[in-house]
Write a protein that binds this DNA or RNA. Structure first.
Lengths: 339, 339
DNA sequence: ACTTGGCACTCCGATCACCCGAGTGCCAGG
DNA sequence: CCTGGCACTCGGGTGATCGGAGTGCCAAGT
């Protein structure tokens, strides 16, 4: 029931609407795209597409615009991810080289993504749970006061201050360092509980209370409830699209301020090695129902440190944005894997 | 030329305009505020205020609105910082307690400020240059590869990876740690150059090259060009005010995305112990000319770790916002000083 | 000298009628 | 199954109208 020409018409509608922002009519469509048929025929096809729910028109005498379902079909079947232009490649390169630490990498990535796609960009910090321990430092700040500093392979640094009921000697601290270091260095954080399980028994009795305190903090705030972080940028781009809908922009901004929401966006990626697109109502997030989200995981050879992506109007350049998100994700993945 | 009643009229205009968003006319004003005079008299006073440049009217048959100059007078002479309500105090308390690290403190503060003031909130991380060294850790990642981790008294953690042309022994690293630690621990970062000046001469020849490399990185990226960080939140509030001006919101969002701009805002605070207000055109920042900025420094007893504040429309509740900013600044200051 | 009521004037904004044009749906003929 | 033709719909822009809010000024009052 949807022959090739109808699909072609749908593609043309999507492309025209994306670039012009205006409902596209049968006549204009027949002219601009060389379909080889008359406007009347296009109208018939349009009617069919509308019956199937791929397009609508805002009112009787207006042209057609794609529905979420229409965009979905377009993304799945009618377009292919657009490779980057040389200029874009260079931009990525020059933007990301010279980052001095993880924070810097993330901030630069957000900026880069926002600039490339001209959309709102979101970058998740490498998830703690999927990282491994590069180094765990235990600093004796004051009697009875310890500072734990955890550094992951991706360069994330987490620190926790810890008050102890008992004072410690310098030697105790050395032992602590040694004990934790030997078991955790190089281990993945998810494996930490296992790696530490026998610790209380294996350690000298004198420091067992301290040791369990440290373990508790470590496991609780870094493994059980690891703090996820997310960076956001390019919100000014929201104003480009919604010139007429100032009330459309608010729920989006509000949603984007919620860490939880952003994490949800990044978290719903099942296969981290490809770009994912959520269109309009497909988003489970209240407030982003009128937007589309393009995401991808990044990390070493397909594994995932975290996710990144962009949020924009459903009327977006999917092919282009998917290409850009993919490219940045890959680049960032390599960058962090090599760090 | 500006007698008490005229000032009273100005105050009334500012208050009414702030709360209603609409130009206020002589009649409404005479009624709502018990000025004891007729609308005609109010009109005369208004004319005088307008001559002096404190108010304008958008068009002939509209009421008056305050100018930047009018707001300035209002802030300086006609209003006093509003103390917080008990509910607000409780909010601050409950919001900030339970923060697990500096990042957490800053993020919570931003959120808190945004929520209290219903404006866009900005919080600067404690400036590196004004902090002192709590701990400097040197980790031997791999032969020829060092990781420096600097932890400040305010809990900021900075890390730098460092490639060395020569491999190091574990003993070398211990020496490095000892040497740097003894000179830097407890010292303010600005004093670091002095504290380290004699180092190359005092150290064993063998590790001098390494030592100077480490020093270079340390001084360059942490002292000479310390990375300033800033957190932003509550941007959704921008949409509350500018319902009618969707193009007004963009330059503001764009400005707020620029670290430089935010730093400028925070940096222009000369006396960090009191709240500062920049109104409209007083802002040197392109894009924020139509907004007002309320800032204050935070830190131990008047000293300044950094700044925080809010950005909103010139038509804002100055008394309230100033009170809220001040309260949060003080609270955050104490919190970090005690950490 | 200041205040006040009165009054003419201005101008914004809402309302309405109007028309143009784009676009559709349908039909009959190729 | 495609096509041209045609009547119909409806949104949006234009222009005229009108009411009301607010002003500025003046002359009279205290």
């Amino acid at each position: 029931m949807l022959d090739d020409r109808k699909l072609e018409v749908l593609r043309a509608i999507v492309e025209d609407f994306v670039s012009t922002t205006e409902p596209v009519g049968s006549k204009a469509l027949a002219e601009r795209h060389s379909l080889g048929v008359s406007p009347a025929t296009v109208r018939n096809d349009m009617a069919a597409l509308e019956d199937e729910g791929f397009i609508t028109h805002p009112h009787t005498s207006a042209g057609r615009i794609p529905t979420d379902k229409g965009y979905r079909l377009f993304v799945d079947k009618l377009s292919s991810v657009k490779p980057l232009s040389p200029a874009e490649r260079r931009a990525i390169q020059s933007f990301l080289e010279g980052a001095i630490d993880l924070d810097d990498v993330v901030r630069r990535s957000v900026r880069l993504l926002a600039q490339l796609t001209r959309q709102v960009a979101v970058v998740q910090y490498p998830s703690l749970s999927r990282s491994s321990v590069r180094h765990l430092e235990i600093v004796h700040l004051a009697p009875g006061r310890l500072l734990l500093v955890l550094i992951t392979d991706t360069g994330r640094v987490e620190q926790r201050v810890l008050e102890l009921p008992v004072p410690l000697t310098e030697d105790d601290v050395v032992v602590l360092r040694q004990v934790f270091g030997s078991r955790l260095n190089g281990a993945r954080l998810v494996d930490a509980p296992g790696a530490l399980a026998d610790l209380p028994d294996a350690a000298p009795i004198a420091i067992r209370p301290v040791l369990t305190s440290v373990m508790a903090v470590l496991l609780e705030t870094l493994v059980d409830q690891p703090e996820e972080r997310i960076a956001l940028g390019g919100t000014a781009h929201l104003t480009r699209h919604t010139i007429d809908f100032p009330l459309t922009i608010r729920p989006v901004l509000e949603a984007l301020e919620e860490q939880v929401v952003l994490l949800k966006l990044m978290g719903e990626v099942n296969d981290p090695t490809t770009v994912h697109v959520k269109i309009g109502e497909e988003n489970n997030v209240e407030g982003l129902r009128s937007t589309s989200v393009v995401t991808m995981g990044y990390g070493p050879d397909g594994g995932a440190y975290g996710g990144l992506g962009v949020v924009g109007p459903t009327r977006m350049d999917y092919a282009g944005n998917m290409g850009q998100v993919r490219a940045v994700a890959r680049y960032v993945g390599e960058l962090l894997a090599g760090a």
